[in-house]
Amino acid sequence: EEKRQVKQVAKEKLLEQSPNSKVQVRRVQKQGNTIRVELELRTNGKKENYTVEVERQGNTWTVKRITRT
């Protein structure tokens, strides 16, 4: 359940930055209360990979860091 929520948060964050792209989740890793989500962003056939680190704060998820990989 929490992985599902985190995927959603990570996707939304990337789509905010580039709204007309397609996002696909590649991998989800958990480390303590930080969850790392690896995503693939496609814009006009151009692929970019991103890693989004999401942290739990109380009962909400906040995006800590977005890295292009």
Rank of each mutant, 00 (worst) to 15 (best):
I66D: 00
K46T: 11
K46P: 02
E16A: 11
N44I: 07
R68T: 05
E12K: 14
V25C: 04
I66P: 01
G32H: 04
Q29R: 13
V63G: 00
K3D: 15
E12V: 06
K13Q: 06
T34M: 11
K13I: 13
E55Y: 08
V63D: 00
V37P: 00
R68E: 05
R36N: 11
G32R: 03
V23Y: 01
V23N: 00
Q17Y: 12
E1K: 11
S18Q: 12
V54Y: 05
K64A: 10
V9W: 02
L14R: 02
E53L: 12
Q5C: 08
R42D: 15
S21K: 02
R26Y: 05
G32Y: 03
G58H: 05
T34L: 13
V37R: 00
N20S: 11
Y50M: 03
E16D: 05
W61C: 06
T34N: 06
V28S: 02
V25P: 02
G32D: 05
L39F: 06
Q29V: 14
N33V: 08
G58E: 09
K64D: 01
T67K: 07
V23D: 01
L39S: 00
K11W: 06
Q29T: 15
K13R: 11
V63M: 01
E55R: 03
R56D: 02
V28A: 05
K30S: 14
R27N: 09
K64H: 04
Q24C: 08
L14H: 01
N49H: 13
E2D: 12
T51V: 14
V63Q: 00
R42V: 15
W61R: 02
E53D: 09
G32W: 04
T34K: 07
Y50Q: 00
R26H: 08
S18P: 02
R27E: 04
G58V: 03
Q8I: 11
E2N: 08
Q5R: 13
R65G: 06
T34D: 04
Q8M: 07
I35F: 15
R68Y: 04
K22W: 12
T34F: 09
K46W: 10
T60F: 11
G32Q: 04
V54L: 13
R36Y: 15
T51H: 05
E53V: 12
W61Y: 14
A10K: 02
V52W: 01
E16N: 06
R65Q: 13
G45Q: 08
A10P: 01
G58M: 04
K47I: 13
V54N: 00
N20Q: 10
R65V: 08
Q8F: 02
K7V: 15
R26A: 04
V52H: 00
E48N: 04
E40V: 14
E48W: 10
Q8T: 08
R42G: 03
T60Y: 10
K46D: 06
R56Q: 07
Q31H: 15
K22P: 03
V9C: 06
T60M: 12
L15I: 05
R26V: 15
R56G: 05
Q24Y: 14
N20Y: 03
S18M: 13
N44S: 10
T67Y: 13
N49V: 13
R65F: 11
S21A: 13
R26N: 08
V28I: 13
K30Y: 15
K47C: 08
W61Q: 04
K46E: 08
N20F: 04
Q24I: 15
E53P: 00
T60V: 13
Q5N: 08
L14T: 02
N59D: 13
K30T: 13
Y50C: 03
E40Q: 10
R56F: 12
P19G: 03
K3G: 09
V28H: 02
R65N: 11
K22C: 08
Q57F: 12
Q8P: 03
V9R: 05
Q29C: 09
K3C: 12
E38Q: 12
R65Y: 09
R36T: 13
N33G: 08
K30P: 09
V6S: 07
Q57M: 12
K11L: 12
K47N: 07
L15R: 07
Q29N: 11
Q31F: 12
I35N: 02
Q29F: 14
L14A: 06
Q57N: 12
Q17K: 11
T69Y: 07
K7M: 15
R36I: 15
V63F: 03
R42I: 15
V25Q: 01
G32T: 02
K7C: 11
K7F: 09
P19V: 05
Q57D: 14
E40A: 05
T67M: 11
Q57H: 11
Y50V: 09
V52Y: 01
E53K: 02
N44E: 10
K46C: 09
V28Y: 13
L39V: 13
E2R: 08
N33T: 10
V23M: 04
E48L: 07
V6K: 02
R26E: 03
G45T: 07
R27S: 12
T62S: 08
E55D: 04
A10D: 01
K13P: 03
Q57V: 15
E2S: 08
I66G: 00
E12Q: 12
G58T: 02
T51N: 06
T69P: 03
R36G: 02
K64E: 03
N44M: 09
R42H: 13
G32E: 04
K22F: 12
Q57A: 11
Q24H: 14
K47F: 12
R27W: 12
L15Q: 06
V6R: 02
Q31P: 01
V37M: 04
K22Y: 11
W61H: 07
Q8N: 09
A10Y: 01
Q57Y: 12
E2G: 06
E55W: 10
G45M: 05
V54C: 06
E48G: 03
R42C: 08
Q5M: 14
R68N: 11
R4Q: 11
E38R: 07
K47Q: 08
V37C: 02
E12L: 05
T60D: 13
V6G: 09
A10N: 01
K47S: 12
S18W: 15
Q24P: 00
T43Y: 11
N59A: 09
Q17N: 10
E55I: 13
V63I: 07
R27K: 11
E40P: 00
E38N: 06
N59C: 05
Q8C: 08
L39G: 01
P19S: 03
Q24N: 11
N44T: 07
N33Y: 06
I66A: 02
K13S: 08
K46M: 12
E16M: 06
E48C: 06
V28D: 01
E48V: 09
G45R: 05
E12I: 09
Q5L: 11
V52M: 05
Q57L: 12
L14E: 01
K46H: 12
G58F: 05
T60I: 13
G45H: 07
K47G: 04
E2V: 07
E12Y: 02
Q31N: 11
E38W: 11
N20K: 10
L15V: 05
I35A: 08
T51K: 04
L14V: 08
E38I: 13
E53R: 02
L14N: 02
T43M: 11
L14S: 02
E38Y: 15
T34E: 04
R42S: 13
K64I: 15
K3E: 15
T69M: 13
P19M: 03
V54R: 00
L15H: 05
E1R: 04
V23G: 01
R42W: 15
V6Y: 04
T43V: 12
V25S: 01
L41W: 02
R27L: 09
K64L: 14
T62Y: 15
